[in-house]
Design a protein around this nucleic acid. Structure first.
Length: 199
DNA sequence: ATCTAGATCGGCT
DNA sequence: GCCGATCTAGATG
């Protein structure tokens, strides 16, 4: 069981190279203290995006929506896509350098029943836990993250990233999923032995 | 003012 | 594996 009080990561954690931040986020915890209760998931899959040198990124050309990626690190970049789904990123690197890490999958840790209810799925067995947050759209639905969280500070409650305990870190890399450009960059990182990664 | 692609998901074949 | 849903930021006229 988790301690009642979790320790948020500091802004300095996010103020580093986005590839480093992406890798290092694996194993840490995404926490949402909502009125309905606290939900916590262990981050098991992420993708890194940058700016002008990354044609696959929303910040390849800075727009009103993506400009936040060039802002100070540790804040949330949330966007709505395909008419149905939100995705959540953490802004990384120093202010002025566009970069963000897309959170793609979580291992449910606490508030599992609430997460399943938000997802509209029945938990009939341990295998169903995989359906809760194995994908960027599923993750935001399970954690009740919406456009309200755009620009929110992820180093403090109610929505934040907290230090995970010591854990195994067998990290695998691959091309980013669902993009066409810059497909040669292995900027997707995931915990190799986790059953909670997407696809 | 209008058009279109999209960092997805779930259901169906 | 393929397809439709459903919305909106960004691009184009």
């Amino acid at each position: 069981m988790l301690p009642r009080r979790l320790t948020p990561l500091t802004r300095a954690f996010f103020a580093r190279s986005v590839l480093t931040v992406a890798r290092d986020l694996l194993g840490h915890l995404l926490v949402h203290e909502s009125p309905a209760g606290r939900t916590v998931g262990r981050i098991v899959e992420v993708e890194a995006y940058r700016g002008a040198d990354d044609p696959a990124s929303h910040a390849y050309r800075l727009t009103p929506r993506s400009r936040i990626m060039a802002g100070p690190p540790g804040f949330a970049y949330v966007y709505f896509t395909y008419g149905n789904h939100y995705c959540v990123n953490v802004v990384a690197d120093r202010e002025g350098k566009a970069a963000a890490v897309l959170l793609r999958a979580l291992e449910p840790v606490e508030g599992v029943t609430l997460m399943a209810r938000r997802r509209g799925i029945a938990l009939r067995g341990p295998a169903d836990l995989r359906l809760i947050a194995s994908g960027p759209g599923r993750l935001t639905q399970a954690m009740a993250i919406t456009r309200q969280h755009y620009g929110g500070d992820l180093t403090r409650p109610p929505l934040y990233i907290a230090a995970g305990g010591p854990e195994r870190r067998r990290i695998a890399t691959s091309a980013r999923i669902g993009i066409r450009r810059a497909a040669d960059r292995l900027w997707r990182f995931y915990l190799r032995d986790s059953p909670y990664v997407s696809r």
